[in-house]
Structures are given as structure tokens and as C-alpha cells.
Design a protein around this nucleic acid. Structure first.
Lengths: 223, 223
DNA sequence: CTTTTTGCACTGACTGGTCAGTGCAAAAGC
DNA sequence: GCTTTTGCACTGACCAGTCAGTGCAAAAAG
């Protein structure tokens, strides 16, 4: 029940080119980064509406005016946070799938690697994951469309692997690609959030092993 | 994108006895019911903090004062809503497991029946499900403890079936019961919410079939 | 039978507080 | 000497919760 270490919620900078020629100030980028970090934990804990801009500014250690100097509004800050975080996840999933393919692994191996990549991501950015899940199925919110786009990017990576598996004869023709992709994502998401929330002492390998077993249908039957 | 029919979000009345002898006014119960129905959709759409008591009252067709006549506060209303909804889900899951057992089905059959029961529940009360998922992993909120208790009740039903399966030799000894239960719940939850949100035209049977296939490890290999 | 009282459910205007966003002059980087 | 940040006072909308009062039916009184 202790608070997670600050590093647990860091969202890495997007590696903007320093761009010394023009005027892409890195000071500004550092401020935005601090604001992302402050916002992500607060919003994960309390929700968007219950989190005040004053709180975000205070936790980031900047003046309130700075928030508005860097972002047009509270919800723009939030939208950029979403886009940024899901970008990291998507890149990580895609990389896991590609690496497996290069090493000559099967499609199931690729799925397994993506499960692990998902767990690593959630382990590193638990607050972001929390916040994402909480907002994903809300309707009537300003950032709905952003969220939809960004969700589709992530799920598409899983769908691509499933599709390739069906095409290569490794998976059943009957496989329902979008639904199965969603179910797999859900499996990892909920298991990982439960891990974080209710048994944080367990290791990532441990959790990964349990999910692998489920993924590979080794639930029923011994061995 | 049209609004769902009102029945889609109905949380059935708890069948209070009319109790004409003592003073259990049924008028009052009807009002509370209307408030539940109004609150569940609004909070699912917008979140707890972004939903105002005025909105809830207006949608329920009562005055704001009536909300406070019936519930001590906005969050008490919400907590009672949570308790009520998860109660319905738990009962439905348990019933599915028991019915399967009576009919001499295997443990996998029981899990499959519970998957279906979960889908039926989400189909009937999509707004409640949405709201539940969105709030479950938030920390620092007043109703955290209520939510934890209520979550454990539901997951425990799944865990019981897994435990029985391990004891009876049907499932591997290595099975990680709490994690697998969470993963299964997540699989159904996320797949179902995606179904509702992104391909609502599909039938429940269809979705159930896709999840069954995944559950029984019939993903890899033909047939 | 008629009048009065009681208690319950509900009403809606009102209050005190909160919070997103603004404006601006002065300081601090780079 | 630009860009960026600070500090801080201010505004106006919005909102949870309150409270004096209404409507009504059933009981009590006359």
C-alpha cells in the first residue's frame, strides 16, 4: 500500500531532436515532461475531472501560468499525454513482434513476446495504464476521437500477428481476429493491473509464465 | 451512435416486498430505482466527478432535493449503485457454475458457462460494466474499500471453479489461480466492451464462440 | 361527516466554496 | 534581446449540499 517510486510513472521524453539550429528549446521540453509526469499520476489516482490544474502545477513544481504557456488547456495536456503514452506502447509491441520474427520464432512466440512487452510497459508505467483503461470506454468526452485512433493503432499490432498466423496456417481459419485481439489485450491488461494492485511483490517473469500457460492452452491437462 | 434504449441500462429493483403492514414505502423504492438508472448511464459516460447531481436528478425526473432525501450524498448513491450491480453479477456467475455442475459438465464447461453469463450481464448492463472498469483501479477514492470487497466477491467465484478443477486433476497443478482468474475476467470484460463499443451488431453467440475457442486453446492448429 | 393534525416524499431557490482560465509586470534563462 | 517562467490577484461559471416550504393521504378529533 506504499506509494510507488516516482520512476514508476515516468513517461520518457519523445526524444525530440535537440535541433540547435532553429529554436526547439529543450528547456521547454523539460517543463512539458515534468507536467506529463505530474499529470499522469494525479489523473490515474483521481480521474481527470477531480484533478485540478493547481495540483498538477504544484506537483510539477512550476507556476500555474506555465501550464497554460505550454498547453492550450487542461484537456489538451491530457490528450497529448494519451497520444504520447500509447505511442510508446505501440512501438514496444511492434518491436517485440519484429524481433521474434527475425529470430525465426512462430506466431505464438510473437504473441508471447508481445504479452511480455505489454507486461514490461505496464510495470514501467502503471499510472498511465490505469488512466488509459479508465478512459477508454467513456463516451461523450472531448478526447474520445483521439482515444479511438490511438487504441486502434495498438490493437492493430496484435491483429497483424493474428492475421499472419492465419495466413500461414498456424492459426485456425475460424479465428475471429478483432475480437481475439481485444480479448488478448484485455487478458494482459487486467491481469497486469491486478498484479500491480493486489500482489505487487510478484516478479514479472512469474506473471508472464502464468499468462503464457493460459495463452498456449496449457490450462487443462497436466504438464 | 444512437442512444441505447433505456432498458439497456436497467438495474432491476431488488424486489422489496411491498410490505403494506409496516412502513416500507414502495414509492420511495421506485424513486431510488429511477435515480440508479439515471446515475449509471451518466457516470458511465462522463465519470463520477464530471457528473453533477443536478443532471442525475433531471434525468430521473425528480428534484435535486429528492436525491438528498434518498441518499446521504453523491458518493453514497454511487457506492450503493456499485454494491447493487456487482451483487447481480456475482449471483449470475455463481448460478452459471452451479447449473453446469448439476448437469454433470466439466470444469471447462463451467468456465465457459461463466463466460457466457458474463457476456449476458454486460449485454444487459453495459453502462454499469463501463463504470465498474473505469473506477476499479483508481486509488485514493472514497469508495475504494467498497470496490475492493465487491471485486473480490466476483473474482472469487471464478477462483473457486479453478481450484475445484485443480483439485479434481482437470487443470494443471501449476495453475496460478488468482492471476488466471483475473486474466479470464479481463478477457471477457475487454472483449465484451469492445464488442459493445465497436461492433455492436454482432450476436452474443458469435462473441461467445470466439471466446470459447480462445478459452479452450483451440487458437493454434486447424479445426 | 367535516375539520384538523400528522408524517412522508418531494421541491427548487439559495449559499458557500471551488476551479479553469486570464492578465500582467517582473525575473530568469539561453 | 529573445523566449520562457514566475507570482499572484482576479473573474465568472459551476456545483454539492441545505432548508423552508408544498402536496397529499391517512389518522385523530370534534
Amino acid at each position: 500500500m506504499t506509494a510507488p517510486p516516482p520512476s514508476a510513472v515516468r513517461i520518457d521524453a519523445m526524444e525530440r531532436k535537440p535541433d540547435p539550429g532553429s529554436g526547439g528549446s529543450s528547456r521547454r521540453e523539460a517543463t512539458r515532461q515534468k507536467l506529463y509526469e505530474a499529470a499522469v499520476t494525479l489523473i490515474a489516482e483521481q480521474g481527470f475531472s477531480a484533478t485540478t490544474v493547481d495540483e498538477i502545477a504544484e506537483r510539477a513544481g512550476v507556476a500555474k501560468g506555465t501550464v497554460y504557456y505550454n498547453f492550450a488547456s487542461k484537456s489538451v495536456l491530457f490528450e497529448e499525454l494519451l497520444r504520447h503514452g500509447v505511442g510508446l506502447l505501440t512501438a514496444s509491441l511492434r518491436q517485440a513482434a519484429e524481433r521474434t520474427a527475425e529470430e525465426g520464432g512462430s506466431r505464438v512466440d510473437a504473441l508471447d513476446a508481445m504479452v511480455r512487452a505489454g507486461l514490461v510497459f505496464i510495470d514501467r508505467y502503471p499510472a498511465f495504464t490505469q488512466l488509459y483503461v479508465a478512459e477508454l470506454w467513456r463516451t461523450n468526452r472531448a478526447w474520445q476521437s483521439t482515444l479511438l485512433v490511438v487504441r486502434q493503432e495498438a490493437v492493430a499490432v496484435v491483429e497483424d500477428v493474428l492475421r499472419a498466423g492465419v495466413a500461414g496456417g498456424e492459426f485456425s481459419e475460424e479465428l475471429d481476429i478483432p475480437l481475439t485481439a481485444a480479448a488478448l489485450v484485455g487478458m494482459v491488461l487486467v491481469a497486469a493491473l491486478d498484479w500491480q494492485a493486489f500482489q505487487p511483490e510478484r516478479s514479472l517473469d512469474d506473471v508472464h509464465a502464468a499468462l503464457s500457460r493460459l495463452l498456449q492452452g496449457r490450462v487443462s491437462g497436466g504438464r
